[in-house]
Structure formats: structure tokens, C-alpha cells
């Protein structure tokens, strides 16, 4: 056990943070896997459906074959890695930041502002904020209250560091 660990949670707190980390990780991981398993998947439709002040940016990506291919690859691999990182607690902080970046990109492409009409059907009722923003907030909580050094692969790096310090 490392003595310099500044985080000290109760069992209940650890369980709650772990649960939050795993469910968000699960969400990201399956989003990534589902795209990898569907050979016809492309972000094209989603990007072309973007509206709001960044719409031109998204449409530019969709209209540029190289950018579109890169966008598809980043989505498939990126979402999977974020999911793995959160579930395993492996580079969990990086994974959380990556997740926030993805969610921001999703949010700004489909902002639920008043009067917004998207081709993509929403599965609920939203005003200005949506599920992406809720997930962003949850990931911020995970960054501020890390749990991967207690339960997660990051614990191994921490212990390696501690062993080196002791030596």
C-alpha cells in the first residue's frame, strides 16, 4: 500500500465511484465495438446531420474522404479505448479526458437548442443539455475523484512507482 496516496474513500464511496466508472466505460466500449462489428458503419450521416455554429466543421469532415475515414477510425478505436480504459481503470484519467472530448464533439454536433430539428431521432426530451452533457459531468467527477489506483490496473503503475521509491 502506498503511503503517499492522498485519496482515501470509504468502501461505499469506492463502490459508487467504481460503479460510475464501469457503467460509463461500458457505454463507451459497446459504442466502439458496435461500430467495429458493423462493416457498413460510417459517421457520414451523423456528421451531415450536424447543426449549430460548428456545423460547417462537421460537414467539412464528412465531405473530405480522408477526414471522413480518419473520423470513422478515431470513433471506432477511440470509443473502444476509452471504454476499456474506464472499465479496467487503465490510464483512467486519460480515458476520462478522451471521453469528455468525444462527448463534447457529439454534443456540439447535435445541440438540443430550441427549434433544433435533426434527422437523428432523440430518445428523450432535451433542452440545451442532453445525455452527453450529463456524461461529461460524470466523467469530470471521475477525474476529480479517481478510483483506478484503488481498484484498477493503474494500481499496478502506482505500486511500481512506490517500489522504486522504497529502493
Amino acid at each position: 500500500m502506498c503511503k503517499n496516496d492522498k485519496y482515501a474513500y470509504s468502501k461505499g464511496q469506492i463502490a459508487a465511484l467504481l460503479f460510475l466508472r464501469i457503467v460509463i466505460g461500458w457505454h463507451f466500449l459497446y459504442e466502439g465495438i458496435a461500430k467495429i462489428l458493423n462493416p457498413k458503419w460510417s459517421s457520414y450521416g451523423y456528421l451531415m446531420d450536424a447543426k449549430g455554429f460548428l456545423a460547417d466543421f462537421y460537414h467539412w469532415i464528412a465531405g473530405n474522404p480522408t477526414m471522413l475515414e480518419a473520423s470513422n477510425l478515431i470513433c471506432m478505436v477511440g470509443l473502444t479505448l476509452v471504454g476499456l480504459g474506464l472499465i479496467l481503470g487503465c490510464f483512467s484519467r486519460c480515458a476520462a479526458f478522451g471521453g469528455i472530448l468525444f462527448l463534447c464533439l457529439f454534443y456540439f454536433s447535435h445541440i438540443p437548442y430550441i427549434g433544433a430539428e435533426y434527422g437523428m431521432p432523440f430518445d428523450g426530451s432535451y433542452l440545451w443539455l442532453d445525455k452527453s452533457t450529463v456524461e461529461i459531468a460524470a466523467l469530470i467527477v471521475l477525474i476529480m475523484f479517481p478510483s483506478s489506483r484503488i481498484i484498477g490496473v493503474d494500481r499496478l503503475w502506482k505500486c511500481c512507482k512506490c517500489s522504486k521509491n522504497k529502493e
Binding site: G25, W26, L88, G89, G152, R155
Partner: peptide, 9 residues
Amino acid sequence: KALATVPVL
């Protein structure tokens, strides 16, 4: 403890 969440995968 480090690999406790692997079963989730």
C-alpha cells in the same frame, strides 16, 4: 485489486 474489473470485459 488491479484486475478486479476484468470480469466486466
